[in-house]
Design a protein around this nucleic acid. Structure first.
Lengths: 149, 149
DNA sequence: TTGAATTGCGCAATCG
DNA sequence: ACGATTGCGCAATTCA
């Protein structure tokens, strides 16, 4: 149950902010400065807004950039929280279903037993019934007033 | 797991938020030199543990570093794959349990109906039985409303 | 102590 | 343009 840290990335309320500047030098292609935002050469992927040459990529110093990033970070957090919650719910659902199934199986067991008893009784009395019915149909006296062995 | 992992370090006490300003590969060139891990501008900002005999920097050029990173990246991938798999299995389990649940309910319905039928039969024949028994017992008993004779 | 496994997090691409 | 997802890498921490 990880207890997430209560990082408040609000750029205002807090006073100091330790900036962890890490250069990500991943195994990607080497780009001197600018980064093509729209790969695949979509040709017209850039809206007719701005296409500053020095801004054909993402300006990390831009205020807007930082804002965008922060928003996204929040969205990511939210999404992951949601995802986690869902997973947890699913696990809970499993337990719930397991319990219910157990309950149902018990009920089945009970019903089966009941049925068995009733059937036995039925068979048992079937003899008597047969006898009785036969006697009655022949207008004869019965032969076993009481016999429940 | 589920250990209240908390990175409450010195900074947090004052409400400082640590912002990882990563310069992703997609934007920067490879860092040619040492990059301080936590250059809060001062150098001694947030020591996660304690003790930093070495410089508070990590040599990203080091072969060992890269190897370490790569290994960890693989481990992360593996772990996440596993996690995903597990989640998927859990979902599958839910469906499986739901199916079984339905099956059990059907069975219960069936058994209940069977039981009902049997009980009805029993009641029905109970009258005959009662009649027969009654007739027979009249030879010995005297509990008759209007058959005193 | 070491290495793998987890976990939290940020970035960027992509989706809706 | 914008939030939601998702793949991926980094670093800290936990496990074994």
């Amino acid at each position: 149950m990880s207890k997430t840290s209560q990082q408040n990335t609000t750029a205002e309320a807090n006073g100091i902010s330790v900036i962890h500047t890490q250069a990500h030098a991943s195994g990607l292609q080497q780009v001197p400065q600018l980064v093509p935002v729209s790969p695949g050469g979509g040709g017209k992927a850039v809206p007719p807004s701005k296409q500053s040459k020095k801004n054909s990529s993402v300006d990390r110093n831009s205020d807007e950039y930082r804002q965008r990033r922060e928003r996204n970070n929040m969205a990511v957090k939210k999404s992951r929280l949601k995802s986690k919650q869902k997973a947890q719910d699913t696990l809970q659902r499993v337990n719930q279903l397991k319990e219910e199934n157990e309950r149902l199986e018990d009920k089945i067991k009970l019903l089966t037993k009941e049925l068995s008893v009733l059937k036995d009784l039925f068979l048992e009395h079937a003899h008597n019934l047969a006898d009785n019915v036969q006697s009655v149909s022949t207008e004869n006296t019965t032969t076993n007033p009481e016999n429940t062995g």
